[in-house]
């Protein structure tokens, strides 16, 4: 059961491991973008503390976008995508496996490195778990929704820019809830509501996005 799906996750992780530099580049992008904000805005601790959640979340969105372009494009270019479409398990399951692999390679590292960025922004210590939890719940949604866009723009000219135009508006709720939960905690309120909403978004995305990705792949591969 789910052998093909597991095989895809392992395969994508193996390829990512052999191309470690690509993964590191997306992560570095995240670090650099967050480091630019103090340079542009000014380094007053009070200001930095207040913008930290938003900056970290926006940078996470952009860094996720950056790696989405490769999600199906590499498989499309070398012809393995056709074999994925002809696999022995429903395409929705295969699509979910691809999104999971994408999250493990590009979303999870962001969750792990975010506390370091928060340190630079002098975020109060009690907010760290909230930030990490919001990213942990939110970044998989980014991978799932983004994969729909990546599948739709497969093989198009200017696919990367187009992808961001399609996907970024759909990321708005995740951004608002993710950054909002940290803001709530910073204001001394309980962030449970926002985190639960993020979890709800994740469940809904996990239930429906794989089928949309599958449909998009079928449309693009014809």
């Amino acid at each position: 059961m789910l052998e093909a799906a597991r095989c895809i996750v392992v395969r994508d992780l193996l390829v990512a491991w052999r191309r470690r530099s690509d993964v590191a580049t997306a992560l570095l992008f995240f670090v650099i973008v967050t480091s630019l904000f103090p340079l542009g805005i000014g380094a007053e601790p009070e200001l930095l503390r207040s913008i930290a959640p938003g900056v970290i979340w926006v940078a996470a969105l952009l860094s996720c976008m950056l790696s989405l372009g490769r999600l199906f494009a590499a498989d499309h270019a070398d012809g393995t995508l056709e074999q994925l479409l002809l696999s022995s398990e429903p395409l929705g399951v295969i699509a979910a496996a691809k999104a999971l692999a994408h999250w493990l390679v590009s979303g999870l590292p962001l969750v792990l490195i975010a506390p370091l960025i928060a340190l630079q922004y002098d975020l109060p210590a009690p907010l760290y778990p909230v930030l990490a939890l919001s990213l942990l719940l939110g970044t998989p949604v980014l991978s799932l929704i983004g994969a729909i866009g990546a599948a739709l723009t497969l093989g198009l000219r200017g696919g990367g820019v187009l992808l961001s135009l399609l996907v970024l508006p759909l990321y708005v709720p995740v951004l608002i809830m993710g950054a909002g939960s940290v803001d709530m905690a910073a204001a001394g309120l309980a962030p449970d509501g926002q985190l639960l909403l993020l979890a709800a978004l994740l469940i809904v995305a996990a239930a429906f996005a794989p089928w949309a990705i599958a449909a998009a792949l079928r449309i693009s591969m014809e």
Binding site: I145, I148, L152, L166, P169, L170, V172, P173, I176, M177, G180, L201, F208, A212, A215, A216, I219, S220
Partner: peptide
């Protein structure tokens, strides 16, 4: 067909976006 799929994904998201923006 690609546009159609995007429109459907979008229309599912519109209420979510609307309410999240309102909360924000």
């Amino acid at each position: 067909r690609a546009g159609a799929l995007l429109a459907i994904v979008g229309v599912v998201n519109v209420p979510i976006i609307y309410y999240s923006v309102q909360w924000w």
